[in-house]
Structure formats: structure tokens, C-alpha cells
Design a protein around this nucleic acid. Sequence first.
DNA 1: GTTTGTGCAAATGCTTTGCAATTTG
DNA 2: CAAATTGCAAAGCATTTGCACAAAC
Lengths: 147, 147
Amino acid sequence: MGTKQDMENIKKQFTELLVKKQLRKTPERYAILTEIYETKGEFDVDDLYLQMCNKKYAISKATIYNNIELLLESKLLKEHRFGPRYSRFEKNHFGERPSHIILNEGEEVLEFTDDRIHDIKTEIEKRFNFKIADYSIYFFAERSAEG
Amino acid sequence: MGTKQDMENIKKQFTELLVKKQLRKTPERYAILTEIYETKGEFDVDDLYLQMCNKKYAISKATIYNNIELLLESKLLKEHRFGPRYSRFEKNHFGERPSHIILNEGEEVLEFTDDRIHDIKTEIEKRFNFKIADYSIYFFAERSAEG
DNA sequence: GTTTGTGCAAATGCTTTGCAATTTG
DNA sequence: CAAATTGCAAAGCATTTGCACAAAC
């Protein structure tokens, strides 16, 4: 995970989507995609914007916003909505889909995986005859007494 | 569930919180609480506001907003953040904490419970030494081909 | 009576949108 | 060169806040 090869695959996947939807392959789109995958953990639009500015890749927030829907659709980006009233995002963790533990109102975020989540997902798909495209699992925690 | 007796317990619980926090027992606070518990399923602030207007209980949205934090804190109200960029809410389902299946971008919301969620919660508390105060489980689904 | 709460209207801040200039295919 | 995209600035909209009046204690 996180290798140069993986990044090439991700870009290829994104290109396929652009072709399929007959959208243009702009440098901004690839720059946003790259920045997302170079970011560890979760971030918001402003974080992404500032990071890109710092790297001297001038881009407008409008363009980031304009492309977020596309990235979500392609499953290359995952949206979080806990704590703050604005959205936070995260790259897709291929293979493992972590669940999140939100500590102290979002001050800190931990990730974990548990196979039972996958079992439940499969069971829902059978029981209700749905296709589960994605899931979000948040446990809201506070550190125990002795900190 | 949903009996007159339950509602009395809920009000009592709320009153205890108000006393403990030295806050005033205003009719607006009890009206909001009652409306929340008379509402089936999830709703947003505007829904609640309009429902109360229709019942000739004139209240301002500001007052609803002013009291939401308090209700969340007391665990009498539960907040949801999926799909739309605004918050949706739901009364507390005492005992059973349902997980949610969000259909077609929030067009429809189903609930289910699974004991394994509780097991995972207990395990996290042991493993990380956290106290899990709450959790949110969302599975995003689309109906299978044949509808 | 003092302090807290309500509710209007204005402010806030994330996100969206209109539109001219630019770029892609 | 036609159509899509960028990016600025303005608009939108859920939520928050300031403040005068009312209500709780």
C-alpha cells in the first residue's frame, strides 16, 4: 500500500472513469487526486487547499469542491460526517475498510478493522436483497478515567 | 415502548438533568422534548419547527437550536450525519440501538439491530481502554437489480 | 429582583453557483 | 473552434450569535 505502483493504478482507475463519463483529463483533477492520496488520515477541503498552496500548486477551492462529487462517485474518496458541521474526507483504503473511533468530539480519530463488520454487511445484503456500496462505522469514545 | 408511562420517565430524566445543571424548566424545553418523542423516525430542525407550528405551539428555530446541544448531551436525542449537509435527528431508542441502512442517498432509511455490534463495542472498550458513549453505524445501499 | 431563556434579525462559515476567461479534445 | 473546466466573487443556506424583552426562580 502507498507505493508508486499503487498510485499509478489509482490514476488509471480515475482516468477510466473520466473516459467513461466523457469528462476532461485536467491537471487540476490529477493534482487533487494525488494530494488526497499523499495525505494520511482525514482532512477537510481547507486542509487540502492549503496543502496544495504550500506545494506551490495553486488551485482554487471552487475546483476542489467541483471535483469532490466525482471523486466520491468513483469511490476514490470517502466522506466523513462526525463532529463538525462540515465534511471531512479520506482516501479509499483499498481492501481494508477501517471503522473509526472518534475521541473527545473528534479531537483524535483512530481506525480499526473487524471482520464481523464484513459479516454483517454480507448478511444484510442477503436478508434485504440490497447491494451495500459502502458503510460508515463510528464509535464515539472518551478516554477512561486514568487517561 | 412509547407509552404514556415512558414519556413520564423521559421527562423525569430530563428534569433531573436540568436540576443537576441548574438550568430552568421552561415550557419550550418540555415542548421540544415531547415533540421529539412523538416523532417516528428521523427528522431535521425544520421538520420539528413546522410540526410544532402546525400543532399551534409557536416556538422559534433559535430555541430549538439552543436546546439541541443539551438534548444530545442528555442522550435523549441522537444526531445523524449522512447524505445531506445538515443534521438529522432521532429520539433515543432505549435499550436497542439500531444501526441504519441508508437507501438511495437517504431517500429511505431502515433500521436493524445486530448483537455483534455490541460485542465489538465491548471489545474496543477493553482493547483500547476507552468508554464508548455512543456509536453510529450506517450501511449505504442500493436496491438490487430487480427492485 | 436577579439571572437565565426566548426569539428576532443579523452574522457566520461551509458549500454552491453564475459567469468570463481558459483549456481540452 | 466547440464544449467543458477553472476560478473568482457573489449567493445560498443551515447554524450560531447579539441583544432586548420575557419568564423562571
